[in-house]
Nucleic acid binder design. Sequence first.
DNA 1: AGGGAACCTCACGTTGGCGTAAACTTCTCG
DNA 2: CGAGAAGTTTACGCCAACGTGAGGTTCCCT
Lengths: 165, 165
Amino acid sequence: MTTSEEDQAPASLRIGEAAERAGVSCRTLRYYEELGLLAPSLHSAGGARRYTEVDLARLVRIRELQELLGFDLGEIGEILQGEDQLADIRSQYQAASTAGRREMLDWAVGINDRLRTLVRTKQERLAGMMAELEAKAQRYRTLSAELTAELERSAELHPADPVAR
Amino acid sequence: MTTSEEDQAPASLRIGEAAERAGVSCRTLRYYEELGLLAPSLHSAGGARRYTEVDLARLVRIRELQELLGFDLGEIGEILQGEDQLADIRSQYQAASTAGRREMLDWAVGINDRLRTLVRTKQERLAGMMAELEAKAQRYRTLSAELTAELERSAELHPADPVAR
DNA sequence: AGGGAACCTCACGTTGGCGTAAACTTCTCG
DNA sequence: CGAGAAGTTTACGCCAACGTGAGGTTCCCT
């Protein structure tokens, strides 16, 4: 009956495992920590970093903001900060005044809006690019057919083609 | 009767105009030229760069490959190179042997396929991200409603609120 | 218990993609 | 035709985002 604990296993990963699963280097993880982007939620007795699945999810999030949306690590820090504050609100719901909560919420909503707009823009640009690429692919198919026809004509003119075996 | 000339006007832009229209700096244009990515198709008598609309389109293409797809300038060079060769095929159609043309065409098709796959992948990841963002936005709306309700309850308990004017 | 793999903290090195200053020439417009 | 704006080359500068040792500690497995 572990109903109230759900997934209590910390499932702690060492830095090498975490890095490999996210497709980055150990150095990158330590660098993110140095920038205050991602701190392992646990440490071994000897001081080795231990990452949870939650940490890993955050890492993946960072990489998406970086690679997909093209933010630099400073901007990513600001974005995550707002969300972290909101997470705090939910867990310690009494911590802030109503007005303070409203302020934080509005801030997070603002970021969310901007992100969604940015994603939409990227989606549209990508769609445009995809259209061009497909048009080009179509032209390539035409060209390829022409070349094949040319080759066959040439084969008819010179039917004797020495082929081994 | 300029039927056979169509758009003969070179519409040549100076480097500053070209840069501004593409949203980059002059230095960037010179740098791209240095890397062999983008050469102005014309020069003034004194040696000043003159860009055509075609050049500008190429510049926009470079920027899309860079910002949207995240290629570095070296990779972009390789991509453009294949397409340039193919453009050569079409204009000087006699220049290469049939086999040679087939080879170039296959190369360009390969690049096109890879690009389309990459764009598709990005589109899917962006869609996933958008879904998360919208889910989050929905949660925010719920939270906001709760806060508003809380505020109104508080207003009923303390109706006397001194307001100027 | 012991030994190799993995981890730790400095701290300096590297690379891409331009920014910027200097010294000079060219363009363009009144 | 003259002058200020814009362009040219050359060359050093700069920052983000890590890479790469060095030298030492810890983990973990048998």
